[in-house]
Design a protein around this nucleic acid. Structure first.
Lengths: 327, 327
DNA sequence: AATAAATGTGAAAACGGTATCACATAATTG
DNA sequence: CAATTATGTGATACCGTTTTCACATTTATT
């Protein structure tokens, strides 16, 4: 059913119907007629047709690498909260870190005339940037800093530094790390830097044997711990890039009689639920994921409304949560 | 820029441009011209305008109660995986279990002419059903059974029954439960029933003192455990409605010298990451959340394609994962 | 070579709304 | 009371696409 058919049924002109849905001038008489017909027919105006004429979509595209991850889903929730409180709709795509799919999604967003785009920590290629520049809508990137774009990010380096410093103050002399690829600007590069800086600043030398690479899973963390503790000399404190990795590492230690924190201290970043129930409970850095999502959405809305070209960067704080894994 | 302007720039007719994007007859010559102009201008056709004419949106509405929950986000990921592999877009709304917001979202979906809707376990009112019936698109409900609608659900009752039976077989004589409100058909009512049936079938009598209500959080689980263990007589085995609740309960036990599984066994449903790292590691039932999402999406696509009216119900299996909390 | 079939083409009419316009009536002002 | 302003009204052009149509070419078939 379209507006003309409906207007006939309601016994008014289509102009009147249009006005009814757009708060224009309308007599009480017609308003009533329309409401009655609405109940009878269940007519709902087509958003697409409205968009063609008005050019407004109230649509925001959101690209998420992995919806099922605790951190991503929190950010997504934050985004959703503020966006749909403001009447914006979310076109969401879960890209599984597939670069090709990300580009495709941007193309999709363009066709759908989204008012803006929010991107969660992805690995950016030049192609990404080119496509993004071509789209004439505001962008906000969550989780990493990038020149020329609005960003909301965490203080990854600071958190890694603080945690490592904490362990050293607690007596760690041979600090180790289970990190992730530096291709990941935030969880990788920044956290590595924070760790290494803290070690250097404390005047300790870093033993290459005390570092391992891991994926973002518990199993991978478990295996990395296995490799880490297979050398003759062992670290007495391990910083892990993420809680999940640390959980895997703790599991390995528990199964192999390595006592935490007595033989080795352990800490990580993320403050996932796991960290609290793990045994021993995990010292971690809380990053404000949901807040990041909210702030990103606010930033985007601001850019949409004011159409400004200036780039904004917001770095969120972290909180260190000391638990049993660092005694 | 619209198709007419672009056609002029490319030096072809607008019909040709339209054909280019829709695989119609088109000479190589014009195809080339268009591709060239495309590179230059970055023109992208308007999805809204296309929709007005063709009436196809390739849009699916998804209502999620709590994106940041582990189970919901897994379901959402499953949905997203199959839907966008088929070229469907996701209009997602996080309703925070706000009934009013759910109705509003359905209205939104109608205006946007979504091809179908997937709903995650919400508490359904008559208003919900009325609005849903009015929409002439297929629905799939995930997480609970409801008459007249396609459903993908878990065997909540079976899982609760199996876990309780397991504890009893391991020697539990005084089974207890920390459950959630029966308003929640799946996590509430069904799991209560499974527990109670298993107790009855084993010929045990259920002591009212051994049951507590909890919210879906760790803290609430912690407090429920506190109440549960404050009575003179204590249960020697506790079934928790969710892993999160169990994690809170385990925490309480650990802090108060109640040994698991020696003093009391514990188990729950969900197989969250937490359960594996908790101490002692938690016996749990794995529900196939991601699969549920995928199946729901498949079911929806099927209904969209075949326009069938028959109602389908798919109940997914569960797997019992025995860990240390039941020794 | 004549005909039939396949392929390619642009003009123009939809699609379902909104915005502008010219105009009518009612309420307010000087 | 006339002049102004506020309020309400329906016809109509327009938004950016696709689709149909009538027609023009080329290729394949007799």
């Amino acid at each position: 059913m379209n507006i003309s058919e409906f207007a006939v049924i309601a016994g008014v002109s289509k102009s009147a119907v249009s006005r009814y849905f757009n708060n224009g001038y309308l007599s009480a008489d017609k308003k009533e007629k329309i409401e009655e017909a609405l109940k009878k027919t269940g007519y709902a105006p087509s958003a697409a047709a409205r968009t063609v004429k008005t050019r407004v979509t109230k649509l925001v595209g959101v690209i998420i690498p992995k919806l099922s991850s605790e951190s991503c889903s929190k950010v997504a929730e934050g985004i959703s909260d503020v966006l749909d409180a403001q009447g914006y709709k979310l076109l969401l795509v879960n890209t599984a870190n597939d670069s090709h799919k990300e580009i495709e999604s941007l193309e999709l967003f363009r066709q759908n005339r989204v008012d803006g785009v929010i991107l969660l920590a992805t690995v950016f290629s030049d192609l990404h940037k080119a496509v993004m520049k071509k789209m004439r809508v505001p962008f906000v990137i969550v989780g990493q800093e990038m020149k020329g774009f609005n960003c909301v990010c965490h203080n990854d380096e600071g958190a890694a530094f603080a945690l490592t410093k904490l362990m050293i103050e607690k007596g760690v002399k041979k600090p180790g790390i289970i990190g992730v690829t530096r291709d990941d600007a935030a969880a990788g590069a920044a956290r590595w830097n924070g760790f290494l800086n803290a070690v250097a600043k404390a005047g300790l030398t870093f033993n290459e044997d005390f570092s391992e690479m891991s994926e973002f899973t518990m199993d991978s963390g478990y295996r990395a711990a296995k490799r880490l503790f297979s050398h003759r000399e062992r670290p007495d404190g391990v910083f892990c890039a993420t809680d999940t990795i640390a959980a895997g590492a703790e599991l390995y230690c528990r199964e192999n009689g390595i006592s935490i924190p007595d033989d080795v201290m352990m800490c990580a970043i993320g403050d996932s639920k796991m960290g609290r129930v793990a045994y021993p409970s995990l010292t971690t850095a809380h990053l404000h994921y949901k807040t990041a999502g909210k702030e990103a959405a606010e930033m985007l809305l601001h850019a949409i409304k004011n159409g400004d070209e200036i780039q904004r960067i917001l770095q969120l704080d972290f909180d260190i949560i000391e638990r049993d894994s660092t005694s």
